[in-house]
């Protein structure tokens, strides 16, 4: 597809609310942010205005360690989204060291060769319009 005809990846961003903004800002700065409850220590993602365990409002954003493991993976052979017309592309479902499951890109090569439960690390890639997204890669790459 002609680059000029592509819809921007940024069109997939949600309307950002006050409590979610630190995640999206962090992503564009190349940081994967999760929430930590200062009352009970629970770490969570996706975010909530309160701790999902104890309902405390003392939830703060912290940068994830970037260590993860591969929970599952899929490869899209049908183009569902206008900014992503080129298939196949793969998505990893990764378990962060902090606990939550997070989805991110996975290269076609890694999709084929990296087994479930393998150790991963977080990286960030620039998409065609400059919007950063998460990519998971094997820890030794």
């Amino acid at each position: 597809m002609e680059e000029s005809m592509r819809e921007n990846v940024a069109s997939l961003l949600p309307v950002v609310t006050e409590y979610e903004a630190p995640f999206w800002n962090g992503l564009q700065d190349g940081k994967l942010m999760v929430q930590e409850c200062k009352s009970c220590g629970h770490k969570q993602f996706p975010p909530s205005p309160v701790c999902t365990e104890c309902l405390s409002e003392k939830v703060e954003w912290v940068e994830a360690s970037g260590k993860a493991s591969l929970w599952s993976k899929v490869e899209f052979n049908k183009a569902y989204l206008k900014p992503y017309p080129d298939v196949p592309y793969a998505v990893a479902v990764a378990r962060l060291e902090e606990g939550p499951l997070v989805e991110g890109r996975f290269s076609a090569e890694n999709y084929k060769k990296v087994p479930i439960d393998a150790e991963l690390k977080v990286t960030f890639v620039d998409t065609q319009d400059g919007t950063k997204i998460v990519e998971f890669v094997p820890v030794n790459d």
Partner: peptide, 12 residues
């Protein structure tokens, strides 16, 4: 229904 997934192409 997952805005964090769809940015990464995870949909449906």
């Amino acid at each position: 229904g997952d805005p964090f997934g769809i940015l990464h192409g995870m949909t449906s």
